Simulated assay, not measured.
Amino acid sequence: MNESPSLSDPAVVAVELERLRGTVEAGFARADGQLALLVQRSDQTDKQLADHEQRLDALERSRWPIASIGALAAMATGAVALWELTGR
Rank of each mutant, 00 (worst) to 15 (best):
N2V: 09
E3R: 09
S4H: 03
P5C: 02
S6I: 03
S6T: 12
L7W: 10
S8Y: 09
D9K: 05
A11R: 09
A11G: 03
V13S: 02
V13F: 01
A14P: 01
V15Y: 04
E16D: 06
L17N: 10
L17P: 00
E18R: 10
L20F: 11
L20S: 15
L20W: 05
G22D: 11
F28A: 12
F28K: 12
A31K: 06
D32Q: 15
D32G: 07
G33L: 02
Q34K: 09
L35M: 13
L35P: 01
L37M: 11
V39W: 00
V39K: 01
Q40T: 05
Q40A: 14
R41W: 04
R41N: 15
S42H: 08
D43H: 07
D43R: 11
Q44I: 04
Q44V: 04
Q44G: 09
T45A: 11
T45H: 09
T45F: 04
T45C: 06
D46E: 15
K47R: 14
L49A: 13
L49V: 12
D51S: 15
H52A: 11
H52Q: 10
H52K: 13
E53V: 10
Q54M: 14
R55V: 13
R55Y: 09
R55A: 15
L56Q: 13
L56D: 08
D57N: 14
A58T: 09
A58Q: 14
L59G: 08
L59M: 13
E60I: 14
E60H: 15
E60P: 00
E60D: 13
S62H: 14
S62E: 13
W64M: 12
W64V: 08
P65L: 03
A67R: 15
A67P: 01
A67Y: 04
S68V: 12
S68D: 13
S68F: 10
I69P: 00
G70K: 00
G70D: 03
A73G: 03
A74F: 03
M75P: 01
A76V: 01
A76F: 01
T77C: 08
A79P: 00
A79C: 07
V80S: 07
A81Y: 07
A81E: 01
A81T: 12
A81C: 10
L82P: 00
E84P: 03
E84V: 06
T86F: 08
T86M: 03
G87N: 07
G87W: 02
R88F: 02
